[in-house]
Design a protein around this nucleic acid. Structure first.
Lengths: 155, 155
DNA sequence: CGCCACACCTGGGCG
DNA sequence: CCGCCCAGGTGTGGC
């Protein structure tokens, strides 16, 4: 049951904004995710399942966009961003079981300069956004420094 | 092989800016372009081909945007604007063959106050733009006062 | 009707 | 300098 890192990505503003999609760097997508392509395979989209640190199962639509020749996670991604309260500069990690490369896990961490508030809720010290943004208090959520991957038989 | 004018439009800043689209005045679109609509027809978008003064073929995506109830040329339009170095206030002309109304031509001219520079490159006397714009020397390009429509069998 | 999912599109930047 | 990524957009449709 040993996990093997696949890749990580530092999230851009677009990855966490209204576009509701994560751009998966091309080589990582090709190397680690099931093959979808416009040239060889017929399948341009599929559903991928990932277990998070709580054992919760996240299903993301994984697509190849031929117009921009890019690989993206779309449906379900925005809910993950919202629940984990991820912002630009934060990181997501993708791992798989060494002996079963069809079982995926997803992890994350806030970027280094994220500060804790008195109420134990993380508050980014700098809000990265193109437009003017009021510093808003995020909704209360459990904050744990250790995020362990769990097990979810439904995933 | 006689050409028949369809309509012309003086370009707005939005027509030549980052929106990458030309708004086609509704009555002109209905009168001259193939029918696309949201109410009656099913087809909301199509590809239109136009030959320019050099015989070069330009393919534009022609769409009806129900949200704004407007007819627009989108994909490919920005490349035309850039190559012809069109700006706000310049004009584009749309023509068709009198005996073959499926064959379209596109022409253009700079607005009257466009000045020539020593190097023969046109330089608009006034740069119209919403944001601050430095007066930049445009790339060298052939400047011809007469723009004749050509023929392109691939169009 | 508002939000979001989806399939497009383009320019900038970098190797 | 050119081709490829990909960050950042768009309108449309579904719910």
């Amino acid at each position: 049951m040993e996990r093997e890192p696949m890749f990580q990505k530092q999230l851009t503003q677009s990855d966490v904004g209204k576009l509701n999609r994560l751009v998966v760097p091309k080589q990582h997508a090709i190397n680690y995710f099931p093959p979808i392509d416009g040239s060889s395979g017929k399948i341009r989209t599929m559903l991928l399942s990932f277990e998070d640190e709580l054992g919760k199962c996240w299903r993301f639509r994984y697509s190849y966009w031929s117009s921009s020749q890019s690989y993206v996670l779309t449906k379900g991604w925005s809910r993950f961003v919202k629940e984990k309260r991820l912002g630009a500069g934060d990181f997501v990690f993708f791992e798989q079981l060494r002996e079963d490369n069809d079982r995926f896990f997803i992890g994350w961490r806030w970027r280094a300069d994220t500060q804790m508030q008195d109420n134990g809720v993380a508050q980014p010290s700098v809000v990265v956004d193109g437009t003017s943004v009021q510093s808003q208090t995020p909704p209360v959520r459990e904050s744990r420094r250790l995020r362990l991957f769990g097990v979810n038989l439904d995933c």
